[in-house]
């Protein structure tokens, strides 16, 4: 494929060239890249399994209520499943949104504050979700 190119083009550095300046000397972006693939692979099984059980098996969502949750979370297996799912999905999604914010928010201040909002909400979601799984009480009285 031969491309005819006219006009000014942005300068694109050769792949794998050392960047001058920028970066803080860690390989954070590489580890984030690896994490997205590893967590993604696990989430394919965890989340599709979760959706299959909750929404397709038996009566689907129609049968879900407090008693159903109590029955499931009586088992350490499902609590472990849900905890792994919560942490992997929330971290996977947080990193995904971080990349999207970096791509589209052009002003430094906007980018910073959107990411602070993202990290704060992610922290609270992980904290709340983890507490709920660990402190669930089937005999709670409302």
């Amino acid at each position: 494929m031969t491309a005819v190119v006219t006009g000014d083009l942005p300068v694109i550095e050769a792949p794998r060239s050392r960047r001058s300046g920028g970066g803080n000397g860690t390989n954070f972006e590489m580890y984030a890249w690896i994490f997205m693939r590893m967590s993604g692979l696990l989430l394919v099984f965890l989340v599709l399994g979760h959706l299959f059980i909750m929404l397709l098996l038996d009566g689907g969502v129609q049968r879900i209520n407090f008693g159903f949750v109590a029955g499931r979370w009586a088992s350490p297996f499902w609590r472990t499943w849900d905890l792994a799912q919560l942490w992997l999905a929330q971290l996977h999604g947080t990193n995904g949104l971080r990349v999207i914010i970096n791509d589209y928010a052009e002003r430094d201040g906007t980018r910073f504050w959107l990411k602070m909002l993202l990290y704060t909400s992610s922290f609270l979601v992980l904290l709340l979700g983890t507490l709920v799984i660990f402190t669930f009480d089937p005999d709670i009285t409302g």
Partner: peptide, 19 residues
């Protein structure tokens, strides 16, 4: 996922609010 963690957290409030 954000909404789903919040709705599931209602199991810690009461069976009725979750239902």
């Amino acid at each position: 996922l954000f909404a789903h963690v919040l709705d599931t957290a209602l199991v810690r409030v009461s069976p009725d609010s979750y239902n």
